Simulated scan of single mutants.
Amino acid sequence: MPCLTGSARPRASVGCTARGSYRPVVSSPYSKSTAVAAALSALDEGRTPERPVLREAVRSLLAGLAERAPGRSVEVRVPPYGAIQCVPGPRHTRGNPPNVVEMAPDTWLALATGRIGWAEAVTEGRIQVSGVRADLSAYLPL
Rank of each mutant, 00 (worst) to 15 (best):
R19L: 09
G117H: 01
S7Q: 00
K32G: 14
V87T: 06
R47Y: 00
P24R: 06
A8K: 04
A112C: 12
L54P: 01
P80W: 11
R47G: 00
S41L: 15
S41N: 14
R77M: 09
C3S: 12
T113H: 08
Y81S: 06
R94H: 06
V25L: 13
S41V: 11
R51T: 13
E75I: 15
R11Y: 00
H92S: 15
V74W: 13
G71F: 08
L140I: 02
P105H: 05
A138E: 06
C3F: 08
A42C: 03
V53E: 01
R47S: 00
T34M: 13
R9T: 02
V87Q: 04
G15V: 06
V101R: 06
V26H: 11
G114L: 10
T113G: 07
D135K: 01
V76L: 14
L65A: 11
A104D: 02
G20I: 07
V36M: 06
G125T: 10
Q85H: 09
P80N: 09
D135M: 01
R94G: 01
V74M: 13
R115L: 05
V74A: 14
A57Q: 09
T17M: 10
A104P: 00
E67R: 14
A39Q: 04
V53P: 01
K32Q: 09
A18V: 13
N96D: 05
Y30S: 14
V101Q: 09
P49K: 11
R115C: 02
P49C: 12
G114Q: 08
S137K: 00
R51S: 14
V76T: 06
R77V: 11
W108K: 02
G6S: 09
P52L: 07
G89Y: 13
E56D: 15
Q85E: 08
R47V: 00
Y81M: 05
S31H: 13
E50K: 14
C16P: 07
G125F: 04
R68T: 10
G6Y: 10
G117Q: 02
G20Y: 09
R55C: 03
D106C: 04
G125H: 07
T17W: 09
R51P: 04
G95E: 01
E50D: 15
V132G: 14
P79E: 14
P2D: 03
A119F: 02
L136R: 07
Y22F: 14
N99I: 03
V76S: 11
G114C: 08
R23D: 06
D106R: 08
L142C: 04
G117S: 03
A39R: 01
I116A: 07
P97G: 15
R9W: 03
